[in-house]
Design a binder for these strands. Structure first.
Lengths: 251, 251
DNA sequence: CAATCCGTCATGGGT
DNA sequence: ACCCATGGCGGATTG
């Protein structure tokens, strides 16, 4: 599992270590110790000398973690170039990419530990509870939104975006449905409003707009009603409350 | 720097290691090896047995990294409880929080390495190029948006959100300005539209709406014009293009 | 390439 | 708590 480990390496050794193990692109590298970090790209940042943990994964992605916080302090999701070199007696790591043009530079002042781990066993990962799944379930059971509803299309692309569900109600009127897996906000109302306006313009007559979500914020509901749109409470989860009043999607 | 290190620890040792070093909340812990991960909360996920790197920071945040990708496969930003125990002869880590109620469970099948690092030196971190900085600069130099503009308020909270800049133009007409540090999208137009409508309702007469950003998408521009709103190209960056036509904010 | 939207978004700031 | 908005958002998808 441990391919290589260095304790308090000197700049030259660390540089060699980094260049060697990043080249193979088959292991996870980490360096812990005192460093400075600079970033320049869509924004710019500077981190004064402090204790950080640097991670470089197989795919060349780089992240620099501060001692707290879930998100890395600096990162580079996709590196086009990843090189280490000695400058002014220090090991410096450059991680750059084009489009957008961005550069992260790590200056190692006092590396305590450098590790290369054989970490490559990919395993299956499944996530449930996404909006996609909610869409699948409602496309199969549109009566959960409203009795008599017929789904015509899913992910229908119009120039203002993608309509989650495009349907027709019992009276033959067209309906745009916007889904949210969580509490719906004013943004969702804006989205729905855009889609309804677009559908309206296509000349099929009056189009209804329904926002289907487990809940909605008070301002969003007010805005929704002011625009003549509708809200349907749809439990997005198997263990949704009150199965009688709010039947589960996944039966 | 290295507080403790175990190689291929047995379940009991790993459990003790985890409980000991998470309790002190003053070091960064990592475990690399074969594991299974389950999550249940706002969504649910399962990762089959594979090679992962588990990080636990001082603040109790947990992240489980797969061999590739910038984002962790599973995570828990804030843990209310973080405990390890032996179950069925395996070390199992539970990380839970309330509000939202979420649980991440890691089952260690074959831990190769457990490390506790003294990593606590926080250092100053500064980011430039944020929308906040853009707002500061434009509040000082509103003439970059339009000659004769006077800023009345910043971050003015209305029930539909926060207006970036509230101003009055040379003719005394009220102006709502929405800023974007990057390319403005239809969402930004929706935001601006909401704010203008809210300001309008307050009864100060006709209110102008200006979207100030370095660029705008074509559909957003179309929508903007259809709503009678305006766009101003504002370079958000010191090294913005063509200083003559597009003066820098940071002079 | 551009544009859109989802996300266990995270994170911060306001009421 | 709720609600809103930003982010170097990342990531996927589609045209």
């Amino acid at each position: 599992m441990i391919r290589a480990q260095l304790l308090t390496p000197d700049p030259a050794s660390l540089t060699t270590f980094l260049n060697t193990h990043t080249r193979t692109r088959d292991c996870l590298i980490q360096i812990a110790g005192l460093a400075e970090v600079n970033y320049h790209g869509r924004a710019a940042s500077t981190a004064e000398v402090g204790a950080y943990l640097v991670l470089i994964k197989r795919d060349g992605s780089l992240q620099i973690h501060a001692p707290t916080g879930i998100k890395p302090m600096n990162w580079q999701p996709r590196t086009d170039e990843l090189t280490a070199r000695v400058e002014h007696g220090r090991c410096i790591l450059h991680a750059s990419r084009r489009s957008p043009e961005e550069l992260v530079r790590v200056t190692f002042l006092h590396p305590h530990l450098a590790l290369a781990l054989n970490l490559y066993e990919e395993a299956s990962f499944t996530l449930s509870g996404s909006e996609k799944q909610m869409q699948d379930a409602l496309a199969r059971h549109p009566e959960l939104i409203e009795p008599g509803l017929t789904v015509l299309d899913r992910e229908l692309l119009v120039d203002s975006g993608g309509i989650d569900l495009y349907a027709r109600d019992a009276q033959g009127q067209y309906v745009v449905v916007e889904l949210k897996r969580g509490r719906a906000t004013q943004d969702a109302v804006s989205q729905l409003g855009r889609y309804v306006a677009t559908a309206q313009k296509s000349g099929v007559g009056a189009v209804r707009g329904i926002l289907a979500a487990p809940s909605i914020t008070a301002p969003a509901l007010k805005e929704l009603r002011a625009r003549g749109l509708e809200f349907r409470e749809i439990g997005a989860w198997p263990d949704a409350p009150a199965p009688a009043a709010l039947p589960s999607l996944f039966d």
